[in-house]
Design a protein around this nucleic acid. Structure first.
Lengths: 248, 248
DNA sequence: ACAAAAGTGTTCCTCTTACACCCATGA
DNA sequence: TCATGGGTGTAAGAGGAACACTTTTGT
């Protein structure tokens, strides 16, 4: 019997969402448990890659299956390739569930950014998945905690250098939402005056003219991300501000 | 007959070196050519992963085989997973050469940084590998040009944010060498006064007290990279200079 | 003496940071 | 009218960019 040679590669997705206060991650329960493995253990959504898809394809597929969403931000982080990262009961469980035979599984991790809304929360709930506060997760099956930690650290770095924050916010958002998002992801508190100055001077926010409604305080203005201005700015820049704070 | 399920994962290494003037990449010739494939075509060094090694292990192995070096800078870049990235004659060649059967090969790319010296150049030459100017490479087999381009862009980005430049220089180096390296990798010219100020203010250079000898101009001082100062600095920093010039 | 690369300071300007009060709204 | 979060300006300091001449050596 010939086992497909690609069946030992899987993808796992760390799907981040932001509820206005906290950074959340989408987790699912292990299905079809084997003996000694609790069905209540949580894990990241993932899948084996199929014969005719690339790894990004596989990650997109996982994402669509669990969230119903297409065309959302999705980027590879690390590969987890330790030969013994999955062993014994866990390996047995996967081989049974996936109907494959292998002694090891190399997984490629992706992180995705989702604009959380009630529709998506409902969809994921029906799928048996839930959105858990990043800070409150302290155990996942296999090496999924490592994968999560790695993805979080990548998210933090990227957020300093790319305008990916907008991927986590609704199309229309307030400055304070954006600021809270940075604060939550980076785990710091931010001066709102300086933050506004910097954000506005970037020229990437487009005022919508709309205001918050039914809030018992001065209503905030809504903005959108000016993607075309960003693309234009990308071409023009040629700064050499390197050695800007070296870190490995 | 059972094919090992991990045999469809390979690693390819983009090994960078710096000769004082130009950025070089280590290339090898294809071995055991099949019909219609020239044995003179160049490629990146690579290998299939073996049963009991991680991907970084495999990359280290490839590196040691081609350069004789251990414990050098080695980091993953991208994964190339298109199902048809290797087809027809190329696939046939690999399957024959590796004694495997598969319809696709997913490769994980790594880039390595080597302190070039005559010993290494001799070693690689005996192995049939050569160091080629990055700017002069315009064709490699399969999708190796893509892998190279990706690795180069990662190297450029990382050099702006991490002190990896020192991995490409001898233990003792002059400021001008360091500056030339930045210039060569980033493809720009750099003001030497500003460069020196920035480098020295980083506090990461340790003077050795030694000078160049037998040069027909004012001899330059040699410095070494102060790794412990760097590690210390890492812990202390807590800067929030984000949104520093967003790019995807 | 000359060729060749090393080494050195200053000025201008931009960006970062720290900090405190009034405004608009719903209850 | 009060509670709540939205929104605003300034001053001091640090860091980035542009720029030209003197020094040391080998030939």
């Amino acid at each position: 019997m010939t086992i497909e040679t690609n069946s030992a590669i899987s993808v796992d997705c760390v799907v981040f969402g932001f509820d206005g206060k906290n950074l959340k991650v989408l987790l699912i329960k292990r299905r079809y448990p084997v003996e000694d493995l609790s069905p209540d253990d949580l894990k990241l959504p993932g899948a084996m890659i199929q014969e005719n898809e690339t790894l990004p394809d596989a990650a997109s597929r996982v994402l669509e299956e669990t969230t119903g969403l297409r065309d959302i931000f999705l980027k590879q982080t690390s590969i987890f390739s330790s030969p013994d990262r999955i062993q014994d009961k866990e390996l047995e469980w996967i081989c049974q569930f996936q109907k494959i035979r292998t002694r090891r599984i190399v997984t490629v991790a992706y992180y995705a950014l989702v604009k959380l809304n009630q529709g998506i929360i409902n969809f994921t709930m029906r799928k048996g998945a839930k959105w858990v506060d990043v800070d409150l997760i302290n155990h996942l099956i296999m090496d999924h905690m490592d994968i999560l930690a790695d993805a979080l650290s990548v998210l933090q770095k990227e957020m300093m250098h790319s305008p990916i924050a907008f991927e986590l916010l609704p199309k229309k958002f307030t400055i304070r939402q954006l600021q809270n998002l940075f604060g939550a992801v980076l785990g710091v508190s931010i001066d709102n005056r300086n933050f506004r100055k910097k954000i506005f001077s970037s020229g990437l926010l487009l005022p919508t003219g709309e205001k918050e409604k039914n809030v018992s305080h001065k209503p905030a203005l809504y903005y959108t991300f000016n993607k075309s201005a960003f693309k234009k700015a990308l071409k023009e820049r040629n700064r050499l501000g390197f050695i800007d704070n070296w870190s490995y």
